[in-house]
Nucleic acid binder design. Structure first.
Length: 422
RNA sequence: GGUGGGGUGUCUGAGUGGCCGAAAGAGACGGUCUUGAAAACCGUUGUACCUUUGCGGGUACCGUGGGUUCGAAUCCCACCCCCACCGCCA
């Protein structure tokens, strides 16, 4: 969420940011409501001042045994007026709030301006995409041939775009998760969290999924709870409405969780196999940092994620998203795209974002600085990495001419010494 | 699900209608003392919003939302959350 005063003082910046993010916002209406609100506020506050003064007077008169009935009658009227104006004010506040919570975050100046992915900028790449020494098969063919991925039965059990892993396939996925967690915990200094996978409405609001993305979320009707679309939600909300000691910063958490996404209206050829599914596993990294350091922390976050792919020896590229591709809450974001030779394309396996104080303001996450002043922290998060797609990259990258899958060296210990599937 | 207890500032915790933005303690910050530190002592220390060029002035906030009242942390209603015990249960 943006600061109300910031919007008032920089309407053009807000308009521009929204336009660059392909969002439609009504800043004029906001300014109009905001001005009316301030007028009413001044009126009602001076009435309240009057009421407070006279109430003290009444208290004094009663103590002195004087007759205060005239004052009381007068204040009865004042109070009625106050109640009326307060009601109008509350209506205005609600309208303002509704606009405010739908205003997207302002992109950082270094973010390339553009409407779609053609404006994204490749920052660097790592590893060579291998020469085509044989006809690479897509992961769904390999998975079915080796009987380690079962789309048919997943469809029967749950519906399309669900997946079931079996035998060594399930184990490979678990190995990936374990390997990633260990890397982030031992080498990168993150603290492991196992959060709740179902959260309340306020948590979903805090990280910015609500109100805009509600139709993309799985929700439990009876309790109005949401299945998390990413561990970012529960982990970021751990410190909602808290004031953290400055010495605690930066805080770095990593969490494995399943992720649930309805993906309403995103079907088609692009989503075949494991590329886009309703439930997938992900290891997430979340940071709470001092504002001064957040862009340095973003770079190390990306590096932490990159190291996963480097150790798996999978070629990838780092892409700086343009304004039009940035999510609602992000100020800047890098995507990591792994090369998947079977489907012959780059797959987004990680997304690392700096939200600056946007989420912190929504969820009241602050810290107390050395001067004793409380300030909003900056929050960041990044996948490290998203499963299913990382699994695609591994399967398609490590397939052999014979149709088997070699196990990446770093995963062998997690596979109980197994070196090859099939 | 049932019964009981409870949600107050950074923390602990007092406060049952006006003199309460809120005692006391802790913590933090500044100072005195000290070679330095600790201890002791003195002082300062909530947030948001409106207004003002500035000094300043004002309003609101004691879990959330309503209500009663001239006036609510305090009384009433609803809801949420936490704790304990009982029941149920992987």
């Amino acid at each position: 969420m943006l600061d109300q005063r910031f919007v008032r003082q920089n309407p053009e910046a807000v308009r521009q940011a929204a336009a660059n993010k392909n969002e439609r916002v009504d800043v004029d209406r906001f300014l109009d409501l905001d001005e009316r609100r301030r007028e009413l506020l001044q009126t009602v506050e001076s009435l309240k001042q009057r009421r407070n003064t006279v109430s003290d007077e009444i208290a004094r008169m009663k103590r002195d045994g004087e007759d205060a009935s005239e004052r009381i009658a007068e204040m009865r009227e004042v109070s009625t007026r106050i109640k009326g104006i307060d009601a109008d004010l509350a209506g205005l506040q609600d309208s303002l709030q509704a606009i405010l919570e739908r205003l997207p975050n302002i992109p950082h100046p270094t973010v390339p301006v553009g409407a779609d992915e053609s404006a994204n900028v490749e920052v660097r790449h790592w590893g060579d995409t291998p020469e085509v020494e044989f006809e690479r098969k897509a992961h769904w063919d390999i998975g079915e041939a080796l009987d380690i991925i079962d789309f048919q039965r997943a469809g029967k059990i749950s519906g399309s775009h669900f997946v079931l892993f079996k035998g060594e396939g399930a184990r490979l996925q678990r190995a990936l998760i374990q390997f990633m967690l260990d890397l982030h915990i031992r080498k990168h200094g993150y603290t492991e969290i196992i959060p709740p996978y179902i959260v309340n409405r306020q948590s979903m609001f805090g990280t910015g999924q609500l109100p805009k993305m509600e139709e993309d979320m799985y929700r439990t009707d009876m309790d109005d709870l949401f299945l998390i679309p990413t561990a970012e939600v529960p982990v970021t909300n751990m410190h909602r409405d808290e004031i953290l000691p400055e010495d605690d910063l930066p805080i770095r958490y990593t969490a494995y969780s399943p992720c649930f996404r309805r993906e309403a209206g995103s079907y088609g050829r692009e989503t075949r196999g494991l590329i886009r599914v309703h439930q997938f596993d992900k290891v997430e990294m979340v940071k709470f940092v001092r504002p001064e350091t957040s862009y340095d922390e973003l770079e190390t976050l990306v590096n932490d994620a990159e190291e996963v792919l480097q150790l798996l020896n999978i070629p990838y590229r780092v892409v700086a998203l343009c304004t039009g591709e940035l999510s609602f809450a992000a100020a800047k974001c890098y995507d990591l795209e792994a090369w998947a030779p079977g489907v012959n394309r780059w797959l987004e396996v990680s997304s690392c974002s700096n939200f600056e104080d946007f989420q912190a303001r929504r969820s009241g996450i602050r810290y107390r600085d050395k001067a004793g002043k409380s300030r909003f922290v900056h929050t960041l998060n990044g996948s490290g990495m998203g499963m299913a797609r990382t699994l695609i990259a591994v399967i398609e990258h490590y397939q052999t001419v014979r149709g088997s899958i070699r196990i990446p060296e770093v995963l062998v210990p997690y596979m109980g010494g197994l070196k090859e599937i099939g």
